[in-house]
Design a binder for these strands. Structure first.
Lengths: 234, 234
DNA sequence: TCAAAAGTGTTGGGGGTACACCCATGC
DNA sequence: GCATGGGTGTACCCCCAACACTTTTGA
């Protein structure tokens, strides 16, 4: 029956929650994976995940996981969807409420977490993961590719100071296209989203090239245009 | 811990599933609602929903609900996300795996279902619904508005034969804009997605105007361009 | 007869794309 | 000195937006 509620709820399902954390290291799009230290699953690769207690909030748990990994609260953290069409675990049905966020890989607290088996993995080369975590990553990736076309994802994925070259590489990887430098500059400068810092990169990290101009995102300009139309389209 | 699985799953959650069915009646965007005939909830309005048994598949249940309401299997039926951050019912936690589909209102088996309290409701005028079903509709609507810009949703929401006027009204309602007839025609004819039927409307149903040309969607052309870029943007 | 919708072309401007060379840096 | 990336301007083309009148139909 499509009358709700008629049949009684069947309270025998468990919830888990996984995070797909997408970052950019200057060369490739990376996703954070965990290697199990639980002997029962020795060496198995997973997305960072946890089981939920019956009364735990999705958003709160996801934000908490994020902040333990990065040290601050996420700006954007979205639910992807619920995964769990198949029987996913032995003891009963577990439905995974998958979430994703865009992150700066440089902010990951690697010292603290690498000893727990957490590490970045090129999204092009993700090995077989436990349960349906490969499906979850693929789903996140598709959603992210759509998002890239409509939002300035560099806000979230690039370090606070970055070069145009990094930004171009990010879009090239994301959309799997070749970008014309000159046209890209015209387009992006027209948006007023970039702020020229008047300093030059020293050429160390995350694909920066020494000597090239540094920029930061102008958050005020971005907030002002939120809700209205986005001024570019790749 | 972010090692998965460490803590044990907590098997005390129930699942339900709601459908947001969006249609177009020639004037307005409509959503299908159910009025409870259960005395405990007398007169309460809901989305068409049902509780899931622990071993039931999301997709299978959603498709089955759809086909009972429309008499055939859905072409596009997507999960929105899992709703259930708050305690939603008295007996325990119920997580709603909400889905949505675009439908032809004319295909709804109204004779059969209206006596069960099912009816179309203008999406601009949805009253207060039970649980968080208003949130679910709003979420569906936002997703749909993005979809409208990128896919020819008329395929799913218009009757097999329709007029350009209907198509324009659909887009005007969806995007809340005024559309220029001439420019719209140029744009849409360039896509080759419409097939001219060489017949004229008799002016009865769903906003058709007598005397105007009838068109149908060219499914072959649509399938061929699937996966590649969509040739229009509203 | 009046109101509402169908149908039909042209023009101008803006934005996108294509394209080549010189300079700075690191190896 | 060689390879890699940074930085710069122009020309063309296409697409989009703006815009008005006549005809048909139903009320």
């Amino acid at each position: 029956m499509l009358q709700y509620p008629t049949s009684k709820p069947d309270y025998h399902v468990a919830l888990s929650l996984s995070l797909v954390l997408l970052g950019f290291n200057g060369k490739n799009i990376e996703v954070l994976l965990a290697k199990s230290i639980n002997p029962e699953y020795e060496g198995q690769l997973f997305l960072p995940s946890q089981n939920l207690l019956t009364n735990e909030d999705f958003t709160a748990v996801a934000a908490n996981m994020f902040s333990r990994l990065f040290g601050y609260n996420p700006e954007v953290l979205e639910q992807l969807k619920a995964f769990g069409n198949v029987s996913r675990a032995r003891g009963g049905r577990v439905v995974n409420i998958a979430h994703y966020a865009l992150v700066k890989t440089s902010d990951f607290k690697a010292e603290e977490w690498s000893k727990h088996g957490m590490h970045w993995c090129n999204i092009e080369k993700v090995p077989e993961l436990a349960f349906d975590h490969n499906d979850i990553i693929n789903f996140a990736r598709e959603r992210w590719e759509r998002r890239v076309r409509r939002r300035p994802v560099g806000f979230d994925m690039l370090p606070p100071e970055f070069t145009i070259g990094q930004l171009i590489k990010l879009y090239e990887k994301a959309l799997n296209i070749k970008i014309d430098k000159r046209n890209f500059r015209k387009k992006v400068f027209k948006t007023k989203l970039l702020e020229e810092l008047g300093r030059k990169a020293d050429g160390k990290s995350f694909g920066q090239q020494k000597g090239s101009q540094l920029f930061s995102f102008n958050k005020k300009a971005y907030d002002k245009m939120k809700g209205s139309e986005y001024p570019f389209q790749f």
